[in-house]
Design a protein around this nucleic acid. Structure first.
Lengths: 162, 162
DNA sequence: ATAAGTATGTGCATTATACACATAATGAGG
DNA sequence: CCTCATTATGTGTATAATGCACATACTTAT
């Protein structure tokens, strides 16, 4: 263990600290509720992340979606049913694979996510108030790179069938 | 809306995309389980984040802890009881305020989090394999700053009693 | 053509969760 | 010193979310 490695260990530990802070903040149900309230909307908080992901990830199957939210596919399947009964999303048979029932955002759902996004952007601007554009751009670039590396990390994915 | 603002909007949207990826990855229960398995440990996955936070945040009360994990304090209270019965944490009456029962990491719990940290660091090194030390240092610095800004953001905290 | 694999959905039992409520301790004001 | 509002914690209980076992429909490989 040389100096360089020790230095990196410290950096990684510091990074993990920040990551915990960030994930904690993002995970607070109060945060979603405040966001919805501020946007003048009402939606079950369990359904909120699913709706946002459907809008972001476009036509997507239940299994992929379940992998994203970290829940069993049966759970997500039921959540989608509820979103569908609220006319916020639609299901359509997959074009290439007819086993897949692709979930798509519906007009009412899109209107909702648009309002949420607007509110979120307003907040984000406040958070980055005293950042220069260059700093922000650098940060966004590094975050993008980190997110990609993390997603490709085998330890992050589901365990292979042994 | 001038060019500068539009540019920032794009940056923020890109950032949110990455944030979703990162938080999704961190939230996967499979990730915790894989981490535990790799470290040769066994622990209920609901208890895992609580244990880690107790180790990180040192002697801490139930309310503060509940705020961090985004759950009701009664839920966290029960989780701590379970951790205590496993001899992973200890409770002690607060030194300054005797209402608080501070939760402290126990030797067995510390041994567990140490092994987890070691495994986590090994993984992190793999993720940042092709980053230069400078890039990593810059990233860590910006993440730290972001985490602080996010934590101070009123929209992230609990709603005030209105 | 048959079998193996994958995507989805339902019945059901478990349990995590939060609300209502109770207790103990603190701190402010009279 | 003595209330009284406030805060930290914990228990009983009802609700709801979750995941497993299982079934069905479709795809792909042999």
């Amino acid at each position: 263990m040389n100096v360089q490695n020790t230095h990196i260990s410290v950096l990684l530990r510091d990074l993990h600290r920040s990551l915990i802070e960030i994930v904690s903040a993002m995970n607070r149900p109060q945060r979603d509720e405040a966001l919805l309230r501020e946007a003048g909307l009402s939606l079950d908080r369990a359904l909120f992340p699913v709706l946002v992901l459907v809008e972001r990830l476009g036509p997507i199957g239940v299994v992929d979606l379940a992998d994203r939210v970290g829940r069993d596919h049966t759970t997500v399947s039921r959540q989608i049913s509820r979103l569908e009964s609220l006319s916020l999303v639609t299901r359509q048979v997959g074009t290439h694979d007819r086993r897949v029932r692709e979930v798509v955002i519906a007009p009412a759902g899109k209107r909702m996510t648009d309002r949420i996004d607007a509110t979120r952007e307003r907040r984000a601007r406040a958070v980055f108030d005293n950042w220069s554009t260059d700093e922000l751009a650098t940060f966004v670039g590094l975050m993008h790179r980190f997110a990609d590396a993390l997603t490709d990390d085998p330890g992050t994915k589901a365990a292979e069938p042994a």
